[in-house]
Design a protein around this nucleic acid. Structure first.
Lengths: 139, 139
DNA sequence: ACAAAAGTAGCAATAAAGTTGCAAATGCAA
DNA sequence: TTGCATTTGCAACTTTATTGCTACTTTTGT
């Protein structure tokens, strides 16, 4: 049984071809993957709606996490091992490349703290950045 | 000439009723305003498309800034005075209320620094947070 | 003050991302 | 291997945003 199948089983999800393929696809790239990329790559193999639903399920179970790109479009990346259904551990930075529009998860040493005005209840902080990614920079 | 008209003139934009009304509307609220809110409020007074175009123009000229909410929908808030066409100064935190879905601009004292992996070129850092806003918290 | 030029508004059509309902197919546990 | 809950595919739909085109305003120069 490969890693994708294992991940699914571990999280109580049925081991279906589409889900396995989605997971492999995401794990193979170093950037967060959009629905459009998957649809392109799965042409004829899986329906648009199936991809949407599979991605939602994978996110709900804490296997992948969702991040919106600068156009508000969802992109998905693998979660750290620490993620569960109840808590998504995304104490990392999302880097948005202004050239290729890809989003990268980047670890950060000290995550910032903030003080909110009186009356605001903080649940979590997110850090993001934009610029040019290493691949686009080389070209 | 009111403040809205002044802002427009200052940024080399034509002083039109729709633009003035949009600016007044945004200035009157303490949260970032969505297209839907404006459309609702302007029913019969201005076309949907006009609102989209006006908001884009206002953003391009550095009068308002755009922030995507947790659903990837655009919301607009007034810029600091420091903003220009060339540089949007948004060194503040965007707080996303999980209840009313409104987005608030919150000043922060020390904005975080980050170190990116080799090869990445940083252009700017953004800080956001989510939780419950002061108004929803009271209720 | 007036006309021309340039920018802006309105309308209709379209695009893109995501969602819903339902029937058929599939994975899995007994 | 069979039964049943889950998952998939298809079609239709919603929401957010964009484009093309024409008509209308605002501004500028005289």
């Amino acid at each position: 049984m490969d890693r994708s199948a294992h991940l699914l089983q571990e999280h109580g999800l049925r081991n279906t071809p589409v889900r396995r393929k989605i997971l492999s696809f995401i794990e193979e790239r170093k950037h967060a993957v959009s629905h459009a990329e998957l649809e392109d790559s799965f042409k004829g193999e899986a329906d648009r709606v199936t991809l949407y639903r599979a991605l939602n399920t994978l996110e709900e179970k804490g296997i992948v996490h969702k991040v919106l790109d600068r156009n508000g479009i969802a992109r998905y990346a693998m979660c750290q091992d620490a993620c569960t259904v109840h808590r998504h551990d995304d104490q990392h930075l999302h880097f948005h490349c202004n050239n290729c529009k890809n989003v990268f998860c980047i670890p950060v040493d000290d995550y910032p703290m903030v003080v909110l005005p009186v009356g605001f209840e903080l649940s979590k902080i997110q850090l993001s950045a934009e610029g040019i990614c290493d691949i686009c920079k080389q070209i």
